[in-house]
Amino acid sequence: MLSLAEFQFTLAADLLDGGMRTARLLPGDPVMVKEALRVHRNTVLSGLANALRLGHPTVAWLTGEDFFDQAAHAFSANNPPHTACLTDYGDGFAAFLESYAPASGLPYLADVARFDHAIERCANAGFTAPILLALDRETAVELDASLVTLSAEYPVEQLRDACDSRDADSLEHLDMSPQARNYAIWRGKEGAAMRPLSMPSATFLGAVLRGETADAALAATLAHADPVDALASIRNEIFTAPFVRILSQPHGE
């Protein structure tokens, strides 16, 4: 007698890899078993592709529906979700695209996927307790809890803008040469917000978000940058940003 767990494990595997093992376990009308598997497989894969599409709108726009669906199906077959809440589904989609053979001529796609995923995740983030960062004995700052940093080689910001405005013509004029680009992304008052960062600011903020102290983050930053320029960047790009709230300042300043 087939156990419930055995039935469920077999059917789940069939739906993801296109197998027909369930049909061998279930005597009956072979045409209807095949059709039932097709209906359920289509529901599962199209549901996962739609979840990925919602989380990666620029990738979907740049690649077109058929290419995106094929990539999504290939990804989902080996990376099914672990929760019923699909809003955040797609961790690993960017890395998958880097090695996805049909996308080998689109080297910017993985960067775009990372940017899309970060933007959508911040747009959906709830308001939770901010990250507290002590700067010295008298001064501390709060960082928005949704804040993340992201590095890219390609102009993901402009590609996303083109997607948002459905402006395919602007793509022709983009400088697609690889170069270091860094961003801070967080949940603003009206959806996700983004700010480009210089390398020193990105290094400092990245270290802070990994849990390092302000002193340690600064030391890591200054080890690879001109101190005057780095401190100016951090002050101008981070401590004036909307994602930061300064809690107190030393007297006399």
């Binding site: 469920q8 494990f9 993801l16 979840a51 099914p80 019923a84 699909l86």
Partner: peptide, 18 residues
């Protein structure tokens, strides 16, 4: 059912009525 062994499939999958 939709989940088995930590994998979630976004569909309402059939049960054998046993």
């Amino acid at each position: 059912w939709s989940s088995i062994e930590g994998v979630h499939l976004p569909d309402l999958l059939p049960l054998p009525y046993t």
